[in-house]
Design a protein around this nucleic acid. Sequence first.
DNA 1: GCTACAACCTGTAGTCACTACAGGAGCAAG
DNA 2: CTTGCTCCTGTAGTGACTACAGGTTGTAGC
Lengths: 131, 131
Amino acid sequence: MQIGDLSRNAGVNVETIRYYERAGVLPVPARQGNGRRIYGEADVRRLGFIRHARDLGFDLQSVRTLLALQEQPEASCTDASRIAQAQLDEVERRLAQLQSLRAELSRMVAECRKGVVAECRVIEALNTSPF
Amino acid sequence: MQIGDLSRNAGVNVETIRYYERAGVLPVPARQGNGRRIYGEADVRRLGFIRHARDLGFDLQSVRTLLALQEQPEASCTDASRIAQAQLDEVERRLAQLQSLRAELSRMVAECRKGVVAECRVIEALNTSPF
DNA sequence: GCTACAACCTGTAGTCACTACAGGAGCAAG
DNA sequence: CTTGCTCCTGTAGTGACTACAGGTTGTAGC
């Protein structure tokens, strides 16, 4: 499998695959005689793992740790659990923040009478300290 | 007022103030004889406006537009309203996404029995396609 | 006047996770 | 043999900052 096939199979951009190699989350692959990268099924699975973790908001450092853990099936999964819990905490923090943003934004939009800027609640709200 | 005072009054990093000047969201200030920037109360208010908008998730391009609008009190505020509505849509999109992330993460964490990696639901969940 | 030391200046580079491009090589089909 | 696709490396760009290096200026204490 060359990089284009891996890209299609895993649904990940070719440039991103090369980036992941540089970033050390994908192993350096073997090369064909012409210098082209060769991949196997394991790489498709690994990319799936990476994309799923990234979609859940884990950064590449966490992905590296999770991948390393995955390769030690007999190790304790305390680390994996801790990383996931930290991510969950972060997601809940962002959720709370976004909910208050939504409240403020929808108030701003609802109160705008589409008149002139001088009376616009959107602009006025931005001029008001959030504290 | 020099840049350090503005920084303290507005609660914005000195480096960020200079960055905002380069980015064109803060006007180029007058200088003292020694080359230091001079600011006034209007700059404190403008920085407050910028920070509030940034905290609501508006990008600097939107902030530039909102600031330009703010300075034309007799213009129609349709643009301001449209920008705020777009931002509200974006916030709701991100909220929905984060809520499904939270669901998946909390399932992962809840099902982890803190045993070995081979049986870890966190790792297993990441190995499972989200589709 | 001398010596610290803080605050300021400019300009550049680093961050994160990609994305995009330039400029070139290799390969297959028509 | 030409067209067009895929691949290669290396570099630069994105957004919104943040962090430095290396220099000047201002102020306070002695």
